[in-house]
């Protein structure tokens, strides 16, 4: 990159489709104005601008195997995400990125992949799941665990329906609290762990969810014998710049936007502030 090019200047993108996922989450499909591919890896993030409101770091939800556009799944939590939800098809937003390291695809190739998604942790993991499905021969088993608080908070319902039927993956789901129509598992995501067996030496667990979920899921994965450097976690932090300058995402001496957001548990267990 030329030193004279501003690292803070976003590319412009058009909102080509938006779709409600749940009461609080929407999917946005974006197309860069200059016609370029975003060129991301699963697990990377972008800084999305709603000009006049601000910029927020958001996970990319689509797989890079899907060409021509990319998707983000967004919960209404702050100024920018609320403003995004008010935008309609055809609106222009700013995009910087992709940023961060993403999931280590090279290490996952040829291995069994155990995905553990808590709530909107499924948004970035969907990028990896679809990448594996689109390159099915490159990977071993694909086991996906998805936990939501309630059935109404499950997202990507059409894809979940396909995954339940799919022969390319083993899909297990649970909700913390079911309702009268829920016939599946009820309980937190760790209650799914007794339901499957793995070959730990060739299994990589990829875990994304709310901070509180991590320590319990890590314990379950270690119980199953998965080594610490095969436990991959993506961490959420405040990020104002995405390029290692603003200081907000620091965990001890680590910049999450630069060295992360994906870390192995071996890397994190000695970082006091990580989880």
């Amino acid at each position: 990159m030329s030193e004279k090019e501003s690292i803070y200047l976003p590319m412009l993108a058009e909102l080509v489709r938006t779709e409600g996922l749940t009461e609080r989450e929407r999917l946005f499909e974006l197309k860069l104005r200059n016609g370029d591919e975003l060129g991301h890896k699963p697990g990377q993030f972008v800084e999305i601008s709603v000009f006049g409101i601000g910029e927020a770091p958001l996970s990319i939800s689509s797989s890079p195997t899907k060409k021509g556009s990319f998707e983000i799944g967004v919960r209404t939590v702050g100024n920018v995400t609320n403003a995004l939800h008010r935008l309609e098809k055809g609106a222009t937003v700013g995009v910087r990125g992709p940023f961060g390291n993403g999931f280590p695809l090279d290490r996952l190739k040829g291995q069994d992949v155990l995905i553990v998604a808590g709530g909107i942790g499924l948004v970035p993991l969907r990028s990896l799941i679809n990448y594996v499905l689109d390159n099915r021969g490159d990977f071993g088993r694909l086991i996906v665990l998805f936990g939501a608080r309630t059935p109404a908070e499950q997202l990507f319902l059409d894809e979940l329906a396909l995954w339940r039927q799919s022969k390319d993956m083993e899909y297990l789901e649970t909700v913390d609290r079911g309702d009268e129509n829920w016939k599946g598992n009820a309980g937190v995501i760790t209650t799914l762990f007794p339901l499957f067996d793995i070959a730990p030496e060739k299994t990589y667990a990829v875990i994304v969810g709310p901070p509180v979920m991590y320590r319990f899921v890590i314990a379950e994965c270690r119980n199953k014998g998965i080594p610490d450097d095969q436990l991959l976690l993506s961490l959420e932090r405040r990020m104002k710049c995405g390029v290692g300058k603003c200081g907000h995402c620091q965990i001890n001496n680590v910049y999450v936007c630069q060295e992360g957001p994906v870390f192995t548990y071996s890397e994190l267990k000695n970082l006091e502030e990580a989880i």
């Binding site: 601000g54 910029e55 200081g247």
Partner: peptide, 26 residues
Amino acid sequence: CVCFDVQDDLELNLTAGERFRQWDSC
């Protein structure tokens, strides 16, 4: 100390605006 925050500001006409950074503190 070099940490900063980034914010947007719109003028009253709601068309012209700027994104600025300002010193922040850990």
